[in-house]
Design a protein around this nucleic acid. Structure first.
Lengths: 156, 156
DNA sequence: TCAGTCATGCAACAATCTCGCGCCGCACAC
DNA sequence: GTGTGCGGCGCGAGATTGTTGCATGACTGA
C-alpha cells in the first residue's frame, strides 16, 4: 500500500479545501519547493489517493432545490438483482452517493432533484425498475448544514 | 440572480467530473474558444455557482476506514443550543456533511473516522458536549457504492 | 567505506490561464 | 431603416502555473 508522510497529509489537507492553490503557495505552507509539491501531488493522483479534482456546484443555483436521503430496504434474495440495483444506482444521475449500511435499512441514497415532482419521478422509476427494493423511507433535507467530502488528516 | 444557458450547464457538467480539464478541451467539447470557456468558468465562480474546486481523497488510503450516517434526534427546546449544535457540527473535522431532515430524525450527519474507536470517541464527544442531542442512531457504511456530490445538469 | 536509492531544489521549458483588443449580433430608439 | 450601445465572442500577447532533466545531499545496506 501507500504510506504517506506528514507532508503528504498536509498537502492533502490543503487541496481538499482548495485544489486551485498554486504549487508555490502550498510549498511555502508546508516548507517545500513548488516542484516537490507538484511531484507529490501527481504521485498521490497516480496512486489513487487523490481520486479526482472536481468542481463543487451549488445545487440551488442550477435549479436543484431538493435533496433527500433515501433509506432503502431490499428483498434479501437474489444476488444478481442486487448487482443490477447497484449498477442502476451508480448510473442514476439523481444519485450523488450511496452506501450499504447496517441497521433497518440496507442502502442509503443521497439524491438531488429539481423539485419534489422530480423526486417523485425518481422514486417511481426506482420502484418500478428495481423490484428488489421492498420499501423505502425519505428523509427530505430541509436545510444543508454542511456539505463536503473532506476527510480529516490529523488524529480525528 | 444568475441565469445559466445551455453552454454553462455543459461546462458545469464537465468540471464537476474533472476540474483539471484544460479550457481548450472543454472548448472543443462545447463549441467555444478556450478563452470564452475560461471567462464563463470564472464568472461561475464569482457568482457562487461553482463553490470551490477540491480534491477528492480516497478515505481508506489516508487511514479513514469508517464511514457512518448518524441520525440525530434533538431536544426541541432552546434555540440557542441548536445554533451551538450546528456550529459544533460545522467545525467537527469528522463530519463531512450534515442535513436537517424531515422524519423521525432531525439531523443526519455523514461522519468519517479512522476506526470504530475513533467513531466511538466522536459520539462520546457529541453526546457530552451537545446535550441537545437526545438520541442517535448509527448507520454504519459497510460499503460505499457511489461517492460524490455531482448534481445533474440535464432534465433529471 | 562505498554504492545505490530516493526525494529534493533549481532552472529551463511547456502548458495553461488572463486580459486587452476589435468584431459581430442583438435590442432599442428614433 | 439606421444608428447606438451592450454583451459575448475569438484572437493573440503576456503572465502564471505545471513539468521535466539534472546535480546534490540524506539515508540504507553490503
Amino acid at each position: 500500500m501507500t504510506d504517506l508522510d506528514a507532508l503528504d497529509l498536509r498537502i492533502l489537507d490543503l487541496v481538499q479545501e482548495n485544489a486551485e492553490m498554486p504549487g508555490e503557495a502550498i510549498a511555502s505552507a508546508v516548507g517545500l519547493s513548488a516542484s516537490a509539491v507538484q511531484r507529490r501531488i501527481s504521485r498521490l493522483k497516480r496512486e489513487g489517493v487523490i481520486e479526482k479534482i472536481v468542481a463543487l456546484v451549488e445545487p440551488r443555483s442550477v435549479g436543484r432545490t431538493v435533496t433527500v436521503l433515501v433509506e432503502v430496504e431490499i428483498e434479501n434474495e437474489r444476488r444478481s438483482a442486487l448487482e443490477a440495483f447497484k449498477r442502476w444506482v451508480v448510473e442514476a444521475p439523481e444519485v450523488q452517493s450511496c452506501w450499504y449500511v447496517t441497521g433497518d435499512a440496507d442502502y442509503v441514497l443521497l439524491v438531488s432533484t429539481r423539485d419534489l415532482d422530480g423526486y417523485n419521478a425518481f422514486i417511481e422509476r426506482l420502484m418500478t425498475e428495481q423490484p428488489v427494493v421492498r420499501k423505502y423511507k425519505s428523509l427530505i433535507a430541509l436545510k444543508t448544514i454542511k456539505r463536503g467530502l473532506k476527510v480529516a488528516m490529523d488524529g480525528d
